[in-house]
Amino acid sequence: MITRDAQIDIAQLLEEFSAVALLGPRQVGKTTLAETIATVINPDPLYLDLESPTDQAKLREPEAYFELHKGQLIILDEIQRVPELFAILRGVIDRRRRQGHRAGQFLILGSASLDVLKQASESLAGRIAYKELSGLTATEILASQTGDQNRLWLRGGFPDSFLANSDPASLRWRLNFISTYLERDVPQFGPRIPATTLRLLWTMLAHNQGAQINLAQLGASLGITIPTTKRYIDLLEDLLLIRHLRPWSGNVGKRLVKTPKVYIRDSGITHALLNLTDMDDLLGHPVVGASWEGFVVENLLSCLPVGVTPWFYRTSAGAEIDLVIERNRQQTYAIEIKRSLAPTLSKGFYLGCEDIGATRRFVVYPGTERYPIANAVTAISLAEMMQELRLIQ
């Protein structure tokens, strides 16, 4: 079993908050992690799957049910299916607080984004903490010795995909995952969306991994309007399947780009959409560089402390930094991402570092050795860069 880096954080939050929400896409390992944590901190946890009619029936009188199981950690899976529970949880938590029970009451799992859940959970302000669970990361698989970094990059971070018996078996799992999302999960989040259109959009995003998306061009290719295109992309983001990386927007007297980059968050899903089965397929495909960049970005962002903001930097004159990590305008990390084992940096990166006043400069590459490059830049492995970012204060 692979130990998840988030396990310690979630256990600590349960000691401090009455409820903790663990968010992540379906099949990313939320339930397994929740049950692992629950058995450690509570000898008799209770698990309810809110997509199960049987478990939903148990909550016809939720307050009475929760009272019956007072003292147990209750895990509520797929909470976005029953958003009205949030208002009831507030009353239950407040009553228990008055009785001296303040922490570790509910562990809530959801496969929709924080913004979606916040609309329903505002009444729990001060009573709930949030933690997002990404797919398996480079540091997790290296620590558990279950595979190498290239295998994680090819197959992505969904545990069933990563741990499949072969690359073709992994690809079949991901293709089925994509179909299930399009046919079952997407219709739960609003008006009917044609599965073929959304799949085509998803595939187009895979071909343009990490690019600044032109909504008008995408819409024209799909035969839909710009507002509809934006709604479809927002839906994929709400389902935690894609990520918008915003451009840095400080006052440097330069003409900065304003359009965000869009990444498919799981590299394995990117490769499945492009029908890339093994490393030979991937290394021979034009998406290889952008795919590596997206893989590194997602791994790095998975380990950022709360309150740390990620950006990218680009000017119309050509200055560019793949990833800017900023903490209270006091620490600024400039991170370039290169697939080469002998990375070289463009003039645009150095200009960008001067523009933003970068205090730390790195290039993340596929090797394992850490060594200095010109102009105070350090070449560093992905796993070591992740450890650096975890130390940000």
Rank of each mutant, 00 (worst) to 15 (best):
N165Q: 14
N165V: 06
D167Y: 04
D167G: 03
P168H: 10
P168C: 10
A169I: 07
A169D: 15
A169M: 15
S170L: 03
L171H: 12
L171E: 12
L171A: 13
R172P: 03
R172V: 03
W173Y: 07
W173A: 05
W173C: 05
R174F: 04
R174Q: 15
L175R: 15
L175H: 14
N176Y: 12
N176T: 11
F177I: 05
F177E: 06
F177W: 11
I178W: 03
S179P: 09
T180F: 07
T180R: 13
T180Q: 14
T180K: 01
T180L: 08
T180M: 05
T180I: 05
T180S: 06
Y181V: 02
Y181G: 02
L182F: 01
L182W: 01
L182D: 02
E183W: 04
R184D: 02
R184A: 02
R184L: 06
R184M: 04
R184G: 02
R184Q: 09
D185W: 03
D185K: 03
V186W: 00
V186R: 00
V186N: 01
P187W: 01
Q188H: 14
F189D: 12
G190L: 04
G190S: 11
G190I: 06
G190K: 06
P191Q: 07
R192V: 01
R192F: 07
I193S: 08
P194V: 09
P194M: 09
A195V: 01
A195D: 11
T196C: 06
T196V: 11
T196F: 12
T197E: 11
T197D: 11
L198C: 04
R199L: 08
R199F: 03
L200N: 12
L200I: 08
L201I: 00
L201E: 00
W202S: 01
W202I: 01
W202M: 04
W202V: 00
T203I: 01
M204I: 08
M204H: 10
M204Q: 11
L205N: 06
A206P: 05
A206S: 13
N208S: 13
Q209N: 07
Q209D: 08
Q209W: 02
G210T: 06
G210Y: 03
G210A: 10
G210Q: 00
G210V: 02
A211P: 14
A211W: 13
Q212T: 14
I213L: 14
I213F: 04
I213T: 11
N214W: 14
N214R: 09
N214K: 05
